[in-house]
Design a protein around this nucleic acid. Structure first.
Lengths: 177, 177
DNA sequence: TACTTTATTTAGTTTAAACTAAACAAAGTA
DNA sequence: TACTTTGTTTAGTTTAAACTAAATAAAGTA
């Protein structure tokens, strides 16, 4: 086991932990780490060996990684194997995930806050305690405001990042030693 | 079941889903939702009833919510019950979570990327392929740069938000209809 | 056509998290 | 002191996710 391998293993382990932190399978993090640290497209059988899981598990994990835009399928002509490369533009990954948030659970949940407000606003006045109703509306609006601001924030940054590759990084790099 | 209750249930359900999305117990989201939508401190027995889980489960969930700064314990004199109130300043919650990130798993994992780079830099030159080593370093630095930038970004926003309450919200509200 | 190689799907197993039920602890009250 | 009320801890159960093993599919090759 060379020092290079040690560093690589350490990195891959870190990716596993990050995945785990985000509620994703540890193996998914490891797979991304392996592909990310390869200078050539990686076939499935290598992932099976290096991540230490079966074909089936690699297959399902890699499909999800692909959907999230973290990896890309790469096909070599005259070779039936599927190869995979890592997306290395992390801002692009975030952008893709944000774009697809319309469809996802998190967005749906956030929207339900807006729905709840609407439900209260259109509630029959005679049938509901106005003090409670207005308290609910106040609290819910507070939360909705926060989510909307967060959303604007992220959108703004991704827009800046689109204008000129690496803008944000440059701004902050100037302030670092 | 009044329209008010419908809206409340809808909101609490939304909180459960958001919790679930972040890899937290659904019940934890529900508990926070219940407390958040109460204009007075909520005792444990109400949470048991409204969230539909046992005392034990409420007890453990509420401890974690407290650690995350999402709720606060509130003690009434001459009353042995513990009551709970919701922290409604979400920026403060983020700030607290960020401050405690030093101790947490995510930060540890991110640091491991920096460690891996160090391992490569201090690797015995004679004992390692320089092409692979420099490729590894390049990739790892790319990722570390991204994490550092993200970290700076979040810190900057929280600093702005600290300077004057609600600054960010105001900036974006101006741009909304 | 039969055989190989590869990826996906499926059925069943393992594992870990979150819960319940119940014991326990703490602290007041009769 | 015994009893009540409240919260926590613990042992065991349930559940859901992620995995393995094996069947299946797909597609090329002899």
């Amino acid at each position: 086991m060379s020092q290079l391998d040690d560093a690589r293993n350490n990195f891959i382990q870190g990716m596993s932990r990050i995945a785990n932190f985000w509620g994703l399978p540890r193996a998914m993090g490891a797979i991304y780490g392996i592909i990310y640290l390869s200078n050539e497209p990686v076939p499935l059988n290598v992932l099976v060996k290096d991540a230490g899981i079966t074909k089936g598990a690699v297959s399902t994990n890699i499909r999800i990684l692909g959907r999230m835009g973290l990896i890309h399928k790469y096909i070599k002509v005259g070779d039936r194997k599927d190869y995979y490369t890592a997306e290395i533009d992390f801002w692009l990954i975030i952008k893709k995930i944000m774009k697809e948030r319309e469809k996802n659970e998190f967005n749906h949940a956030i929207k339900s806050v807006g729905n709840s407000i609407q439900m209260l606003k259109s509630a029959d006045v005679n049938d509901s305690d106005p003090a409670i109703s207005s308290f609910y509306i106040e609290r819910m609006k507070e939360m909705k405001g926060f989510f909307d601001t967060l959303d604007s924030l992220v959108s703004a940054f991704l827009a800046i990042e689109s204008l000129s590759q690496g803008t944000i990084k440059k701004i902050f790099d100037r302030n670092r030693n």
